[in-house]
Design a binder for these strands. Structure first.
Lengths: 233, 233
DNA sequence: AAGTGGTCTAGACCACTCC
DNA sequence: GAGTGGTCTAGACCACTTA
């Protein structure tokens, strides 16, 4: 390295990436330790550390104490996507957001919903069904169960004006969650909501969240036909 | 803070998270600057910086120079998922992986595929169609177009034994990419491959990748009925 | 103009792991 | 035991933004 100018961690990252792409360092190969790299690149070890951590975080490098740093054999591609509140997603796309509460109650969840919550939770849960609209037509159908033991005050909440999603964001802390994406054929109800044929392929996201081990909510969001979830690597 | 013991950046992160969850710092509120926090928590500014950067990265905080750090009003949930090579995904699930090349050629892509590649690319592309199997039955259908200008040697590559996916991982560097997930109704060909009814809802991932602005490959992966993409928040 | 986060440095100690 | 990455520190300068 005889490059001029300041050396930031992004420069180090790009330099390392370049050496990997040009096969100077091939998949599986060890790369020099941080101190040597720092001397080589003309910066401090801290800067190299930051760059290599970013690359390890992205799956390009594998690092282990004492064992050193290696180029990953099969670079694990990762993608990340934001999960916006539906209202923001719709408004960001330039459409007018609408919300219609179909039902709000207190009931025993069916077996399918119970399975999703695992762990312990009361017999009866708050059940909310609603439609999110874009420019007046149905955008997504929401079917949600909320554990009142984990969310104080949810029994008295009114979800006719504010969606349960946004209400929960403000009132229920969350520590963990999982999401499942799948394709599903429209049932009679969904066909009516979306004005499509029964059996049409719909995109669905099922989300379950916990707070410190206690199930908080499980929600199933079914999107109108043609919905696409886009993300960047 | 009168806590004893060493203060690591994870401790700082957890302390800040606790104050947010207990509403000491509510959504939209500004939090103290890094120097004050460091003095308060009994550590150096660098440690605070690392913790706050992690929280900002997770969407919990919003930070801007001069303007300071605030608790995000609508915490943007983010999910991240790994995109494993299909062989690994199938083997990790405990199944036997199989691969069948259906066709490999050189052709003009249809309009739909051309649109996906945007930018400039040659008239004719390498076209690969294959099936990935789990325990002998079809798991995913792959339809891929590869830009020979961006991937030297792809014209002579043989994808009958090694999937194009793995071949490309070893031979084609990638700088950017995008993925789209959607639900789609099975056509005649897919119904035959998967042994399902035409019109069944199938989960599909479309991925496009570039290297330094040049399109490398576009691939459409259609999964067998019932496929679920799972991820963690 | 001034205050904030972004980053680099040089040094240090530690945890982990492989030999 | 020894070498590696993980992390903390104290200080410094800079870039950006807002008042």
């Amino acid at each position: 390295m005889t490059g001029a100018g300041p050396v930031g961690w992004r420069d180090v990252r790009d330099e390392v990436l370049g050496r990997i792409r040009s096969r100077i360092w091939a998949p599986g190969d060890p790369i020099p330790n941080e101190s040597d790299l720092a001397r080589d690149l003309g910066c401090s070890r801290g800067t190299v550390n930051r760059a290599l951590q970013a690359l390890a975080d992205a799956g390009i490098l594998e690092r282990r104490r004492r064992a050193g740093t290696r180029v990953a054999r099969l670079p694990v591609r990762q993608a990340r996507f934001r999960i916006p509140v539906l209202r923001e997603e719709i408004e960001a796309a330039g459409h007018r957001y609408g919300y219609r509460l179909l039902s709000q109650g207190f009931a025993r969840p069916p077996a399918a919903a119970r399975r999703g919550l695992r762990d312990a939770f009361p017999e009866e849960l708050v059940h909310v069904v609603a439609i999110h609209e874009a420019d007046g037509s149905a955008y997504a159908h929401e079917d949600r169960w909320i554990n009142p033991d984990a969310v104080p005050g949810v029994r008295g909440a009114d979800f006719s004006g504010l969606s349960a999603n946004e209400w929960l964001l403000r009132h229920a802390p969350i520590s963990d969650g999982e999401i499942v994406f799948l394709a599903r054929e429209a049932g009679e109800g969904e066909a009516a909501v979306f004005g499509c044929a029964p059996g049409a392929a719909l995109f669905r996201a099922e989300r379950r969240t916990w707070h410190q081990g206690r199930p908080v909510t499980t929600v199933s969001l079914t999107f109108r036909p043609g919905h696409r979830l886009e993300t960047t690597i």
